[in-house]
Write a protein that binds this DNA or RNA. Structure first.
Length: 601
RNA sequence: GCCCCUGUAGCUUAACGGAUAGAGCAACUCUCUUCUAAAGAGUAGGUUGUGGGUUCGAUUCCCGCCAGGGGCGCCA
């Protein structure tokens, strides 16, 4: 179903052309106040000002006169007559449209019939989009910043899919580099191993502390690694000799030195197993896990092969890309130690990704601190191969900041993602003792997800458990609860044997003759907006718009529910149908946020 | 020093250049014999950091200033 908004826009465009001979693409928007109708356009004011109509044509002496002339033209269209019950002109020159009851009821029945299809469109025309997100580094903690990333990434993927894109989810993880060297060095300290022994790494593997961790669950293993990383980082910063040793260790990791390969492999796997359990818990599945360890050699080769043609250059024994030629800045791609940096690795990654998933676009969902880095890296990729031009995109999102102090895994004060999910669940179980295990997990994950998605993507989240993970008001559980209410009504109606049949003509004619309550009309009008919100959220990668919409819809439903009886009412058919349609839209919307809706709570 | 981002009610925040700046927490009043009160109704709370400019119209765009955050060659 094409949205009624687009249809009206087209007719409006044609009407304006007929009337004035001017080509303009008019846009309808939703008035913030319901009083001004379902759609509104400022096109008359734009025509008047930008196109200089007042000078050209004296017929339209004022904006209002022009707007009235446009409305008169619109009233010749049968689509307008069928879909709109009223069009008004409002100072200083808005044209406001009201959708007709007939259209709204038809839409409601359509929603009930097509179920999870409502909201989907083909507007992205099977565009191949690679979405790269999550990127936790092995040997480090999976903190709430990663959690925001993965929650955001998953929702964006679902929104793009709902708009017809062909999406592949991938994850790129740092399993080599200085942070790994720091973690392994920290491990050495935590296990009190003797670093003077050439085979210290294999000694650690037999160490009893490590053996004990080996028997722990994956969360405990990950926590242990996190502790090692923090310890190693401190040594790196505070002890000169430790720093030198870590640098040597790093070089050994890059050269796949057999003396540390087994330890590296084992601890790396600990991290990956742990990450896997989180992906499962939040409902994300990656098509492909990329690792820095598999791209750094290719990256190095690519960089070196483009020194002669001048794309990269030698400087102070390192290989750099001179972004200053493009108004950017210089960056090191290969260090003087011969290690491939993050930048250099990306050259290998880009080519590998394009080979495996020939994409129209790749979205890197990464924090804002890397904006400058990505600009340089993308420019370098462009220079090497024009195929990357305008396809690589950095989708930035804000930090998750602790109210008191900064979160840093280097300093060891991080809130882990797992802890947050568990804590949310604990509180839910405490408050709602009768709730079963499965539902409380859904509600916990939903509350955490919603709390991260309701903010604008780019804004930082000031995190504190009390404020952030709310279970009431504008929260995940509020939406889930509204959905559970709709389903409760539907269940009761089945017991009373008063099912709503979408193909019953009697019923449908009856619906159109009802006298509507204001709360019912507001709900009907709101249902229409869903398809547009899904489009807009995908277009601007902004799940928060969908959150706002769903919260608003749920509020309207709760008000309706409070004020009116559904099943014991003369308007039972309408109200039941409305309840079903609202439930369906909330469910579809929650799915796009990555939140599952429970039938009961 | 240069570059980028942010500043809205006590707190957390929303608002394609639109109409009376909209919510949620927290505070204070009310509403369960009812299809789930995890809800609903109401009261109070704002010079949208600040000073200019563009516009019929600015939280939104432009410039200055103030405050906070991030980045700027061997980390990722």
């Amino acid at each position: 179903m094409e949205s009624v908004k687009q249809q009206i826009e087209l007719i409006l465009q044609k009407a304006i052309k007929d009337l004035t001979g001017l080509e303009i693409v008019p846009k309808l928007s939703h008035p913030s106040n319901q009083r001004h109708g379902d759609y509104s356009t400022n096109v008359a004011m734009i025509l008047f000002k930008d196109k200089g109509l007042r000078i050209k044509d004296k017929k339209y002496a004022t904006i209002l006169k022009l707007a009235e002339a446009i409305v008169e033209k619109l009233n010749n269209s049968s689509l307008i007559i069928n879909h709109c019950s009223q069009i008004e002109v409002w100072p200083p020159g808005f044209i406001n449209f009201w959708l007709s009851r007939n259209y709204l009821i038809t839409l409601m029945i359509y929603i009930i019939r097509v179920k999870e299809e409502y909201g989907k469109s083909e507007r992205l025309g099977n565009k191949k989009i690679l979405v790269e997100f999550a990127h936790p580094n092995t040997h480090k903690e999976f903190h709430i910043g990663h959690l925001r990333n993965i929650i955001l990434g998953e929702s964006i993927c679902r929104l793009l899919e709902a708009n017809g894109a062909n999406v592949n989810r991938v994850n790129y993880q740092g399993d080599v580099g200085l942070h790994v060297a720091k973690a392994l060095f920290g491990l050495l300290r935590l296990c009190h191993a003797d670093q003077t022994q050439p085979d210290w790494a294999s000694q650690i593997l037999k160490n009893k502390i490590l053996k004990r961790v080996q028997d722990d669950n994956s969360y405990q293993k990950a926590k242990f690694l996190g502790k090692a990383y923090t310890s190693g980082s401190k040594s790196y910063e505070e002890e000169k000799s430790a720093k030198a040793k870590i640098i040597v260790l790093n070089k050994k990791i890059y050269s796949k030195d057999p003396s540390i390969l087994p330890l590296w492999g084992k601890t790396r796997q600990w991290s990956l197993d742990y990450f896997d359990s989180i992906y499962k818990r939040v409902g994300t599945q990656f098509k492909r896990l990329y690792f820095e360890s598999e791209v750094y050699e290719a990256g190095k080769k690519i960089v070196l092969s483009h020194v002669d043609d001048g794309i990269f250059e030698k400087s102070d024994n390192a290989i750099i890309f001179d972004g200053e030629k493009f108004g950017l800045h210089k960056r090191v791609f290969i260090t003087k130690e011969g290690n491939t940096t993050y930048e250099g690795k990306e050259m290998g990654l880009g080519h590998l990704q394009y080979k495996e998933f020939p994409f129209d676009e790749v979205l890197h969902i990464v924090g804002p601190e890397q904006a400058g880095y990505f600009r340089v890296v993308f420019k370098a990729l462009d220079q090497i191969d024009a195929v990357f031009k305008n396809k690589e995109k950095h989708l930035s999102y804000g930090f998750v900041q602790l109210k008191q102090g900064k979160m840093s895994s280097r300093m060891g004060n991080v809130v882990s993602g797992e802890w947050l999910l568990d804590e949310a669940k604990l509180r839910i179980r405490k408050e709602f003792k009768k709730m079963d295990e499965e539902t409380s997990e859904k509600v916990a994950v939903g509350s955490v997800k919603y709390s991260m998605l309701k903010f604008a993507r780019e804004s930082n989240i000031q995190f504190s458990f009390e404020d952030s993970i709310s279970l009431e008001g504008n929260s995940g559980p509020y939406l889930q609860y509204a959905y559970a209410r709709t389903q409760s009504v539907v269940r009761k109606s089945e017991i009373l044997n008063s099912k709503f049949e979408t193909n019953s003509n009697d019923q449908n004619t009856k619906l159109k003759n009802y006298k509507f309550e204001p709360e019912e009309v507001l709900l009907l009008r709101s249902l229409n907006r869903f398809q547009e919100v899904v489009m807009e959220s995908a277009e601007t990668f902004a799940p928060n718009l969908l959150c706002n919409y769903l919260f608003d819809l749920s509020q309207k439903f709760n008000l309706f529910y409070q004020k009116h009886k559904i099943l014991e009412s003369e308007n039972r058919e309408l109200r039941l149908a409305l309840t079903m349609a609202v439930g369906q839209v909330i469910k579809n919307g929650l799915y796009l946020l990555g939140i599952s809706a429970s039938e009961r709570m």
